Simulated scan of single mutants.
Amino acid sequence: MKEGRIIRVSGPLVVAEGMKGSKMYDVVYVSDKKLMGEIIELKGEIASIQVYEETGGIGVGEPVYPTGAPLSVELGPGLIESIYDGVQRPLDKIREMAGDFITRGIHIPGLDREKKWKFSPKVKEGEEVEPGDILGVVQETVLVEHRILVPPGIKGKIVEIREGEYTVEDVVCRIDTGAGVEEIKMLQKWPVRIPRPYVKKLAPEIPMFTGQRIIETFFPVSKGGTACIPGPFGSGKTVT
């Protein structure tokens, strides 16, 4: 896609021209510093961009690089054991690269591309599968078993699946859909603004005991549910 040019900067809001072909909520990289942003308004070839990093020093005429893809998260083994910033950059990796403070323009994948995980199949070659079926599992932590599912929109017969150690980008299964063979990896990318599909939502029924009497009394939490801890700044919500 053709790169655009900045015509106005107002704090975290950047306006760029020449953004033909871009779509709402596409991710772009602003200036040669490659600051991450998201298109929040389009008028012809003029795009308003919400930049998720400090825009100090960015000026008119600098380039904007479209990606043609929406803001997405990476799903796969390694997700549970990691701590991220707001755009799924692993904080431990950022610290290794830049020290204790996050510098601008750092781009690190959400999931480790080099670490290998032990994949154990739960289906056999020749079986028919459909979206949401469990292909295999990865023991991500002592307590967490990560299930590798058939992605949405894919159904057919398994033609190849193997146990072994793989990275998240290695192919662990091949499915014949009738229209071709789909290669399945442990890594899946999903747009953040599109809800994950489901057949049925299960109502949470099992309580989760936090050990905090005030929470158990006024804000009971259920396993698999959601919770809210109200309070002012500095009151200890995060510590709780």
Rank of each mutant, 00 (worst) to 15 (best):
G76P: 11
E45M: 04
L202F: 12
A47I: 07
V168W: 03
D100R: 05
P77R: 00
L135E: 15
I83K: 12
E17T: 04
G37H: 03
P151E: 07
I106V: 12
A203R: 12
G61S: 01
E96W: 09
E128G: 06
R8K: 07
E38Y: 00
G59W: 10
E38I: 06
E140G: 08
Q139I: 06
I214K: 08
I154C: 05
K189E: 13
I39S: 00
D170S: 09
E17L: 06
K237D: 02
G61C: 04
E163W: 10
I108P: 00
E41P: 12
K93D: 01
T167Y: 06
E128W: 01
G57A: 00
V60L: 11
A227T: 14
S22F: 04
I161F: 08
P191Q: 09
Y29Q: 06
T210D: 01
I39C: 05
G56L: 08
T103H: 14
L35T: 02
R213I: 10
P191H: 13
L143T: 15
S222Q: 14
E125L: 07
D100A: 06
V129G: 00
P121I: 01
G76L: 04
A227L: 11
E160H: 09
A227G: 15
M186N: 09
S120A: 11
P191W: 05
E140P: 00
R5Q: 14
A203H: 11
A69K: 15
V64E: 07
G86V: 02
V30I: 07
V15K: 13
P152M: 01
K93Q: 09
F233S: 10
L79K: 11
R104W: 03
E216L: 05
V142G: 13
A16G: 02
G211Q: 14
P63I: 09
G231H: 03
T240S: 05
D100Q: 13
V239N: 10
V73I: 08
I83A: 04
D133L: 01
G180L: 04
Y25L: 11
K157Y: 03
K118T: 14
K43H: 07
I161V: 05
G21S: 11
C173W: 12
M186L: 12
I229K: 07
A203V: 11
E17V: 08
E125N: 15
Y29V: 05
G57W: 03
Q88V: 03
V150N: 00
E81N: 13
V14R: 02
I94V: 11
A203C: 03
F101G: 07
V28K: 01
G68H: 09
D32C: 11
V123H: 14
E74A: 14
V14C: 02
I206W: 05
G110S: 13
R113W: 09
G68I: 00
V199G: 12
L35H: 00
